[in-house]
């Protein structure tokens, strides 16, 4: 019972050939086949948001997203695609500046979701931010700092 197939994934601007079960969650292909471990496993049930990625600009839960559905030319952006150490995105910088994390495990998902939000709504209110981010969980409770970090980007740019 294997549906293994060769597919092309476009991740962070690069094409990758992969050979995987079509129903395998995108999360594990990113992590195990492409070595992109910034996208985290926190529940596998779509409940925590740690596995969030952007697919054609939309925030998606990669733990529930069959890889085959992402392999038809869609552009996938993971945390590694938002910015690098020497070239951080505004949100990444702002997260550091505002101490928007403790353990940092939820942070990639938070940054992806916030990036998705600012793409569709560059000037969100505090309530818009809360609504867009509400299904991303942070057990350390860094929520207020995350809100401040996003608001800072909205205000400054």
């Amino acid at each position: 019972m294997s549906d293994k197939k060769s597919m092309i994934l476009n991740v962070n601007g690069n094409n990758h050939q992969i050979f995987a079960d079509m129903n395998e969650p995108l999360l594990w292909v990113l992590r195990d086949d492409l070595g992109l471990t910034g996208t985290k496993f926190g529940c596998g049930k779509g409940e925590c948001g740690a596995c969030s990625v952007l697919i054609d600009g939309d925030v998606q839960r990669s733990c529930r997203f069959p890889v085959a559905y992402a392999a038809a030319g869609q552009e996938i952006i993971t945390i590694e695609g938002l910015g690098t150490a020497g070239n951080l995105s505004k949100l990444q910088k702002s997260f550091i500046k505002h101490s928007a994390f403790c353990c940092g495990f939820c942070t990639p998902g938070m940054l992806i979701t916030a990036t998705g939000l600012l793409k569709t709504n560059p000037y969100p209110s505090r309530d818009d931010i809360i609504l867009a981010m509400n299904n991303n969980l942070c057990r350390c409770g860094s929520y207020s700092n995350i809100i401040e970090a996003i608001e800072f980007v909205v205000k400054e740019y």
Partner: peptide, 21 residues
């Protein structure tokens, strides 16, 4: 001082156990 792991955290580079292979 700000979190010394900050850059690794925001770029997804910090290695938790699950990220090792």
């Amino acid at each position: 001082i700000l979190n010394v792991n900050g850059i690794d955290i925001v770029t997804g580079a910090l290695k938790y156990v699950n990220d090792l292979k």
